[in-house]
Simulated assay, not measured.
Amino acid sequence: MEHLLNQKVKNLELSGIRKFFNLVADYEDVISLTIGQPDFFTPHHVKTAGKTAIDQNFTSYTHNAGLIELRKAASEFVLNKYGQHYKPESEVIVTVGASQGIDIAFRTILEEGSEVILPGPVYPGYEPCIRMCGAKPVIADTRYTNFKLTANIIKAHLTEKTRCVVLPYPSNPTGAVLSEEELKEIAEVLQGRDIFVLSDEIYSELVFEGKHHSIANLLPSQTIVINGLSKSHSMTGWRIGLLFAREEITKHMLKVHQYNVSCASSISQRAALEALTGGVDDAIIMREQYKKRADYIYGRLVKMGLEVVKPSGAFYVFPSVEKYGLSSFDFSISMVSDGGVAAVPGSAFSASGEGHIRLSFAYSMEELQEGMDRMERFLTQIR
Score class of each variant (00 low, 15 high):
D141G: 00
M372E: 06
D39P: 04
N64Y: 13
I284F: 06
D373I: 09
C133P: 00
V122P: 10
P38D: 06
L276F: 01
C133E: 00
V165T: 01
L306W: 08
Q289I: 10
P168L: 09
T223G: 09
E366V: 13
E366F: 09
T59P: 00
K211E: 04
F318M: 05
R270T: 04
H356S: 12
A98S: 13
E160P: 03
E322D: 06
Y296H: 11
V336N: 08
V138K: 06
S332F: 11
L110I: 04
A272Q: 02
R358W: 10
A216Y: 15
V317S: 03
H44C: 03
V280W: 13
T52F: 04
Y27G: 05
L306V: 06
A135T: 03
I154F: 04
G340R: 09
R358E: 12
V256D: 03
Y363H: 12
F378S: 00
S214F: 15
F41S: 13
D330R: 08
I139M: 06
P137W: 06
E182W: 06
E89C: 07
D281R: 15
A245M: 05
G325P: 10
T142H: 14
G346C: 10
Y298I: 00
V92T: 02
K148P: 10
S312M: 12
V122R: 08
S266Y: 11
V78M: 10
V122I: 06
T150P: 02
H3G: 07
K251H: 14
S32Q: 07
K8P: 02
S350V: 00
T95W: 01
D103E: 14
R293N: 10
T174S: 09
A275M: 07
N22G: 01
K51Q: 13
Q37Y: 10
N57G: 04
I267F: 06
D338W: 10
R300Y: 08
T150E: 01
H85C: 15
N6V: 00
S204P: 07
E89G: 11
L219F: 03
R163M: 09
I284M: 02
I357E: 08
E376I: 11
I224E: 13
V207I: 01
G134S: 01
C164D: 14
I102R: 11
F21H: 13
N64G: 13
S214L: 07
S99D: 00
S364F: 07
K81H: 07
A348I: 01
A187C: 05
L4A: 08
D29R: 07
P319N: 08
E354D: 04
G97N: 14
L23H: 15
I186M: 05
I17W: 14
N22T: 07
D194E: 08
D141E: 00
A216D: 15
N22C: 03
K87E: 12
S350P: 02
Q258V: 12
F331L: 05
T59G: 06
A283W: 03
G228K: 05
V166Y: 04
S265A: 05
P38Q: 05
K251P: 02
R246N: 05
K81M: 12
A65Y: 09
F40S: 15
G83L: 03
D295V: 03
R383M: 09
L198W: 14
T48N: 13
V336K: 01
L273D: 06
I68F: 15
G279N: 07
